[in-house]
Amino acid sequence: MRAVVVVLAGLCLPVAGQAQTAEMPNYDVERQCRRIAAIGGNYSEAMYGACFDSEQSSYDNVKLRWSALPESIRRQCDRIARVGGPGSYSMLEACVQSEESAGRQNQQRQFRR
Rank of each mutant, 00 (worst) to 15 (best):
V15N: 06
A19L: 11
I80E: 00
I39R: 10
G49A: 11
R2K: 13
G103R: 07
V6K: 06
R104D: 05
S90K: 03
Q18P: 04
M1F: 12
E23F: 07
E45N: 10
D60P: 03
A16P: 08
S58Y: 00
M91C: 10
C95G: 04
C95M: 08
D78Y: 02
C12T: 13
A50N: 03
E71F: 11
G10E: 05
E30P: 05
K63F: 10
Q108V: 09
Q97V: 11
P86Y: 11
N61S: 14
Q32N: 14
L13E: 07
S44C: 01
P14R: 05
E71G: 07
V83D: 08
M24L: 14
Q107K: 15
N42F: 09
G40P: 02
K63R: 14
L92C: 08
S98G: 14
T21Y: 05
R112N: 13
M24Y: 06
Y27F: 15
D60S: 13
A46Y: 04
R35E: 06
Y48N: 01
R74N: 04
G87N: 02
Q20W: 02
I39E: 13
D60W: 06
A19W: 01
A81R: 00
V5M: 14
E23N: 14
I36R: 02
E45H: 06
R31Q: 14
V83H: 08
I36T: 02
P86A: 12
A94I: 05
R104Y: 08
N42I: 09
L64C: 13
Y48H: 02
A3W: 04
K63W: 07
G49M: 09
V7K: 10
S57M: 15
E55T: 02
R35H: 04
G85L: 01
Y43Q: 08
C95D: 00
R109L: 13
R74A: 02
V29S: 03
R34I: 07
A22W: 12
A22P: 03
Q76R: 14
P25S: 15
W66G: 00
Q110C: 15
G87Q: 03
S72H: 14
Y59R: 04
S72I: 10
R112S: 15
A68F: 09
R109A: 11
L69W: 00
N106A: 12
Y89L: 03
I39C: 08
V7R: 10
E100L: 13
G17F: 04
Q97S: 13
S88Q: 05
Y59K: 07
V7H: 07
G40K: 05
L8R: 09
D28K: 11
K63G: 05
Y48W: 05
Q76D: 15
A19F: 07
Y48F: 07
A38E: 06
L8V: 11
A102P: 00
E71K: 11
S88G: 10
Y43N: 08
T21H: 04
G84A: 08
R109Y: 11
A102V: 08
R104T: 06
V83T: 09
P25I: 09
G41R: 03
T21C: 12
L69G: 01
N26H: 15
L64Y: 12
E99V: 03
D53L: 05
P25E: 07
E99F: 01
C95T: 01
V4P: 08
G49H: 10
Q110L: 14
S88A: 15
E99G: 01
Q97T: 14
